[in-house]
Amino acid sequence: MIDTGDVRAAARRIGDRVRRTPVLQAGPTLWFKLEHTQHAGSFKTRGMFNQIVAAATRGVLPSAGIIAASGGNAGLAAAYAARELGVPAEVYVPSTAPTVKVDKLRKLGASVVQTGNEYAEAYAAAVEWAQASGAYFCHAYDDEDMVAGNGTLGLELLDQLPSGFDTVLVAVGGGGLIAGMIAALHGQASVISVEPATSAALHAALSGDGPVDVPVSGVAADSLGARRAGDIAYSLARDAGIASLLVDDKAIVDARRRLWDDYRQVVEHGTAAAYAALTSGTYLPAPGERVVVLLCGANTDPSDLTLT
């Protein structure tokens, strides 16, 4: 299982290939970690760099390059990391992937295949072609190297907020980010899962006996639309006893608008889910509780932010 040592090893492996993203203090006891300013627009760039470099170090990265499946962000991260490392990349995305993400994938030099209506269908097609082509399959979230790389975000937070913090709110799809945060912050802070009520794979896993398929829909499905939570995320979240919260689409849309109106931060709907836990009152911090909200992705069309 992934632990803090694995995350620290990932940080050394990644080095300065990723940005040290800033922290914005939004109140006396509230901070935003601006990870949406990361290369390729999301935290997943950390995990993808670690996954690809680790594969090369182990001698298992073929000349055929990498294949990834994604609702958008993991593919963008894979395309960016592959380009920077000089590795061919092919990315499978569902036909419902936002145009802004598909266009950016192509700009980053990746070959793009659109298939199926949701991430699970794109994933199945990508796995099949990886096996046939010999390319290295980079999982979007349920991979130890991916998780450890994502966790480097938590190490940055510990360094950036030396006086400490109590709680981190994390938007969850398949669970690759929250798994990394749990590993990085073990014994340092509480990590809380926030999911859309209509795409709640980790919540379903924690409410039952493990990961199960769940229906996926809603405004944040393009980035938090994993049909099933990753085994790594489930195991770490279960063992840590984390709280799992659900927010509805209205709260997500409102939180995204507030992030723009109040702080001029442009994020995608999935990212806004973490803040929605606070703005909707789903999570009520205790007096004096120091809370960090991870803003983890910005691959969105901002044209609707100023609509009334």
Rank of each mutant, 00 (worst) to 15 (best):
A69F: 02
L295N: 10
G180A: 12
R290H: 07
A197R: 12
S207E: 14
A56K: 14
V112Q: 13
E84Q: 15
H186E: 14
R13A: 00
R228G: 02
S244H: 07
D143G: 05
A205R: 07
M146E: 06
P211S: 03
L153V: 10
V216L: 04
L307F: 07
A11P: 08
S199V: 08
V7Y: 07
L307K: 11
W31I: 08
V219Q: 02
R12G: 05
S63D: 14
H203E: 08
G180M: 05
K104Y: 13
D304R: 13
I2C: 04
V266S: 05
E128P: 00
H36F: 15
K104N: 11
I14G: 04
V100K: 01
H203D: 13
A240C: 05
D249Y: 00
K101F: 01
L202Y: 09
L305W: 08
D239F: 01
A189R: 00
D209E: 15
Y80M: 06
L259Q: 01
T115L: 13
L158I: 11
A171S: 15
A69V: 03
W260F: 15
E121R: 02
Y123W: 14
C138M: 10
H36Y: 15
E128M: 13
T282D: 01
A79T: 06
A273V: 05
D249W: 05
T279R: 11
R12H: 11
A221R: 15
R256L: 08
K33W: 01
D209T: 14
A255I: 03
G225R: 02
E195V: 07
L307Y: 05
D222R: 12
A26Y: 09
S63T: 14
A226G: 08
D159T: 10
E268C: 10
G270S: 04
G15V: 00
Y234I: 01
S199R: 11
A205Y: 09
G174V: 14
G5H: 10
D261L: 12
A184F: 05
A229R: 07
R19I: 10
L105V: 10
T282L: 01
G109P: 03
R20M: 00
E90L: 12
R20S: 13
R257I: 04
K33L: 01
A221H: 11
S63C: 03
W31N: 03
V53N: 00
A126G: 13
F165H: 08
A179D: 02
G109E: 11
E268W: 00
V113R: 15
V212L: 05
S63P: 03
T96W: 04
R83M: 00
N150I: 04
L278E: 12
N299E: 10
R17Y: 02
M146L: 11
D304P: 06
H203A: 13
G27A: 12
V60N: 02
A184I: 07
A79G: 06
T271E: 12
A273W: 11
F49M: 06
V292A: 06
A273K: 12
L202K: 09
L61W: 07
A124I: 02
G230R: 03
H39Q: 14
Y263G: 02
S223K: 04
D145F: 02
Y275F: 15
F43C: 09
G47P: 01
D6Y: 11
G41N: 06
S95P: 00
A11D: 10
A251M: 04
G218C: 06
A276V: 10
